[in-house]
Design a protein around this nucleic acid. Structure first.
Lengths: 337, 337
DNA sequence: GTTTAAAATGGGAACGGTTGCGGGAATGTT
DNA sequence: AACATTCCCGCAACCGTTCCCATTTTAAAC
């Protein structure tokens, strides 16, 4: 569409000098007479010259673009991460290309392929919930493509990884309920195969253990983050001879459903049953009762991931401590506990 | 970093043919012997050849990248729009580059400049709240750069624009309260200078007028979306000799604050004062009472904007109806009214 | 005024593809 | 067998830069 963009050759012709000289004047490293430089720069501005990054990229074999692959940007958690990455990248004059996998491993693969074709300088990836096959990303790694993994990471690869503190999150909320005097604390957990689920389960177990509370398998229900799962679990727990007096969940969305059910049944929160969440979603402070939850710092996760990528890009290798970085969250106590 | 990527020259050398032949075999338009084509394709696959989009872009003068500039991707409204754009773009094999202006007109300008340098094929822009100066974008337009404006649009430019239905939103919620029998309906409005604010105010006024309710300036308070603004307005309204019996707001966040204040004062919702929002934020259904609100369709807005951009890119001109597209929302009635 | 080194500039290859043009081989026609 | 036609393929230019190397200009030294 755009009418012929001004090139250094146009400038050179206009000034009656060679394009090499123009190039040198515009890049400030080579040796050139100061007056010439100034003259060229003036003409370049007059003609509204804009360097062609494509040509430059072709030579330097870089695009200053980073591929960011996430499951779903409409989830606030991911949106904040993306924001963090973008801010970190912008500071170093990198652009980010967003591709969503929609939680589909196939689309994830296609996205990686497409971004490889676009010759991005590196990838920041958060895998799908169902991604089991890491062959493709391993190939990228063996080709030497800079890679950073976050949130849902690929453990098998020696690349920088940034995750939220799953273990500590559930350890903290569970311990909090124990300190509130709760004895029979249930856990509404995530899918078994997810690393994050296992870590959170461990945090829960460890908290119990440290306070000499025996682990009761009946009080743990795995879920697929579905409303039905919540209902089934509550049905089951409330009909136990000794129902729980506290329920930890691994995501705020689950906690809110539980609170709804408890309110409907007239069970007092937190006196009879206390509830905790995970994530500090935007509405956690708005609902009644306010939800006690573990706040994550997704923006920070994004920033750290971005920082590692830039380290990879400049130094070639990230600092030693970068293999697995755990972003600490913090407990936010509200009326539900 | 990456070891030398395979080029068509490598393939040509290996097969003892010229790079032109390889190129022709790989792009399926030119005339070439079928056997040769197959052989080349086979070798290309064996060698894991990947075309270099930079070189291609240099020739075709296109990058298949779209620049998307938004104020803040952490806002769910914008995140959904971006998602819509991304999905639309992906379908046509375009990538999107995200840049956030953080509501700063200066950063917005810088972003546009940076993306111009990256030679994106087009821009999808949502301006800052404070963007008043559209010179830069007008220049882009006069250069022939494909442009689509959404949500916070530049009215002065003859380009496709996609917006939510501000007028209808407030018209609908106001009318809804009137139908609920409310007589003194207040409006918690946005900043006066914003187009969207004016449209929403008009929707409110028109609804009143159509039902023969006189417009009372005392019942309209402009805000800058700050909590203090809500408190001031409520303080003022509740101390009127005849306080309102219904309050429309122009964003859900304001409605929630109002509900909080009303609950604190023991005022019954909706019997004494009904409340409506705008946006259908994720927590609107969760709070107590559930918030009656006007649901926007940001994902759809993004998709439409993306579609227009692709039309611009392929046909050169978007269809006639594309000048201003208004994405209809719908009223969601809950317990707050 | 010459010589010599240093500084400034120009020429051209290279990056990785596409594409118009021309030529040689294969095929068809008389 | 001679000629026209078609079909493939190679050559070379081009896209907009950078950068090495050669060449010219300038300045300094004798």
């Amino acid at each position: 569409m755009q009418k012929h963009q001004v090139t250094i050759i146009d400038i050179a012709r206009k000034m009656g000098i060679s394009k090499s000289t123009v190039s040198r004047a515009l890049t400030n490293n080579a040796n050139i007479k100061p007056e010439t430089r100034e003259a060229v720069i003036r003409v370049a501005n007059e003609m509204d010259y804009q360097p062609n990054m494509l040509a430059l990229g072709l030579i330097k074999n870089e695009t200053r673009m980073l591929g960011v692959i996430i499951p779903d940007i409409e989830k606030p958690f991911f949106a904040s991460i993306v924001s963090g990455i973008q801010h970190a990248a912008a500071r170093m004059n990198y652009r980010i290309i967003i591709a969503q996998s929609d939680e589909s491993p196939e689309i994830e693969k296609e996205n990686i392929k497409a971004l490889m074709l676009s010759r991005v300088d590196g990838f920041l990836i958060c895998h799908t919930r169902d991604t089991r096959d890491f062959e493709q990303i391993k190939q990228l790694h063996s080709k030497g493509v800079p890679l950073v993994s976050f949130a849902r990471i690929c453990q098998e690869l020696p690349i920088p990884k940034v995750v939220e503190d799953d273990f500590n999150g559930l350890f903290t909320t569970t311990q909090h309920l124990i300190e509130r005097g709760k004895k029979r604390i249930a856990l509404f957990a995530g899918p078994k195969h997810l690393l994050a689920s296992r870590l959170r389960l461990n945090g829960y177990k460890t908290a119990l253990q440290q306070h000499n509370i025996p682990f009761n398998p009946k009080l743990v229900k795995h879920s697929k983050f579905l409303t039905e799962n919540v209902e089934e679990a509550m049905e089951y727990w409330l009909n136990l001879p000794e129902p729980p007096d506290g329920i930890c969940t691994v995501y705020d969305g689950g906690a809110i459903k539980i609170i709804e059910i408890l309110k409907r049944k007239g069970i007092k929160i937190p006196e009879q049953i206390a509830v905790t969440g995970f994530g500090n979603d935007s509405w956690a402070s708005i609902i009644d009762p306010g939800l006690t939850t573990y706040e994550q710092k997704p923006f920070e996760i994004g920033q750290i991931a971005g920082k590692f990528m830039l380290e990879l890009l400049t130094k070639g290798k990230p600092s030693m401590y970068s293999q697995l970085t755990i972003s600490k969250g913090s407990l936010i106590v509200r009326q539900s506990s």
